[in-house]
């Protein structure tokens, strides 16, 4: 077998359909995904990272972002992976939701994460949350519920109805 070198299009740097169960899409760190067929979007091990779940229930479209850093401005590399950053990730997610039929006016947001896991790192969790609130406000998307801060890791699932199920490391679970 021979492997030559056709110039193929490179994939987008955020892979948005990793690890799929039937009806479940896993979203990794610095990734985002949009679902239109009622799938549940899951992301695990949120520490200082922030998860932003957006839904347009009328259009039955929802999307989840797992961002690591507040702003693209903090990085030396520009826009290589927008989902790594809260601000660029939210903008990209809204755009992707729109392209999948969502209306910006109907979107609502739920956010989780942004914990202060360590004293060693300068409050990256709270800064992530703050940036998420600013970016969503600027985009005119209301935050209807949030579970952020504290010093606890979280795992989240965004259901098709927009409900964000947040499970903390100690097993405590609540739905936003």
């Amino acid at each position: 077998m021979s492997h030559s070198s056709p110039s193929r299009g490179r994939r987008a740097s955020e892979s948005d359909e990793t690890g799929v169960d039937p009806g479940r899409i896993r979203v990794g760190v610095g990734e985002l995904a949009v679902a239109t067929d009622g799938e549940t979007l899951t992301t695990s091990g949120l520490g200082s990272c922030v998860a932003v779940g957006l839904v347009d229930r009328d259009a039955e479209v929802h999307g989840l972002l797992h961002a690591m850093l507040p702003s693209e401005d903090d990085a030396r590399s520009a826009a290589a992976r927008p989902a790594k950053y809260v601000d660029a990730g939210i903008a990209t997610l809204i755009e992707r939701l729109r392209r999948s039929g969502a209306s910006g006016d109907r979107l609502e947001a739920r956010i989780a994460g942004g914990a202060e896991m360590l004293d060693l790192t300068d409050a990256v969790g709270p800064r992530n949350v703050e940036r998420a609130e600013e970016s969503l406000a600027a985009a005119g998307v209301p935050i209807v519920a949030s579970d952020v801060g504290d010093g606890v890791g979280r795992t989240v699932q965004l259901r098709a109805d927009g409900g964000l199920v947040v499970r903390a490391a100690d097993g405590f679970e609540r739905t936003l």
Binding site: G30, S44, G45, L46, G47, S48, C49, R76, R154
Partner: peptide
């Protein structure tokens, strides 16, 4: 090195702030 900071949580959550911090400069 700094004094130790104890962590006990979901594995990936404990490491994510470090990754976030370094991600600003490297991959």
């Amino acid at each position: 090195h700094s004094p130790p900071e104890f962590v006990h949580d979901i594995g990936s959550a404990t490491i994510s702030p470090l990754v976030a911090k370094l991600s600003q400069r490297q991959d």
